[in-house]
């Protein structure tokens, strides 16, 4: 096959770019331990309010500068409505839904997951700057969808 030199260069450039991206993907996943959220646990949605940790939604300190925030999403609101953490703390969000599918997006961060009844989602984020973040439901959930929000206040 007769391939022009300039085309060969172009093809090799494209191929090596793909290779670099692929290696970067593996490195970030296994070398740097960056993971996308997966299913953490399952829970019976009928009994979620009696099941730990969802029997007591809210913020608790689990170590120095480390917090766990347990959230419940339901039509139409979040529980708790507001959490306050000091700047620089790492917050692990643990959340599920009690009825239909909801969304959980902490504005301005990469914390964004679906709240699926029966599944527990978990994601951590370090809030470095003081400020206020809106938590919104972005997964359409019925007539009160636009009313469904909560807040993270970083002091």
């Amino acid at each position: 096959m007769n391939v022009k030199k300039v085309e060969m260069v172009f093809l090799s450039l494209c191929a090596s770019m793909l290779l670099v991206f692929l290696l970067a993907l593996f490195y970030s996943a296994y070398g740097m331990g960056m993971h996308l959220p997966g299913v953490e646990a399952t829970v019976d949605p009928r009994e979620v309010r009696q099941t730990a940790p969802f029997d007591e939604p809210g913020l608790r300190e689990v170590g120095e500068g480390q917090y766990e925030a347990v959230f419940l999403g339901f039509a139409w609101g979040f529980q708790p409505r507001e959490i306050t953490v000091p700047a620089g703390s790492e917050v692990t969000f643990i959340a599920t839904a009690t009825d239909v599918i909801h969304g959980f997006h902490v504005e301005g961060t990469r914390v964004n997951f679906m709240l699926i009844p029966g599944q527990v989602a978990r994601q951590s984020y370090t809030f470095r700057e003081p400020g206020e973040h809106l938590i919104i439901c972005h997964e359409f959930c019925g007539a009160g969808h636009h009313l469904m929000y909560a807040r993270v206040i970083v002091e």
Binding site: L25, A29, H35, L36, G38, N112, F113, I116, Q119
Partner: peptide
Amino acid sequence: MFTVGLGPIADS
């Protein structure tokens, strides 16, 4: 469905 939480292998 990336926000569903299918896990890193499926997502990749």
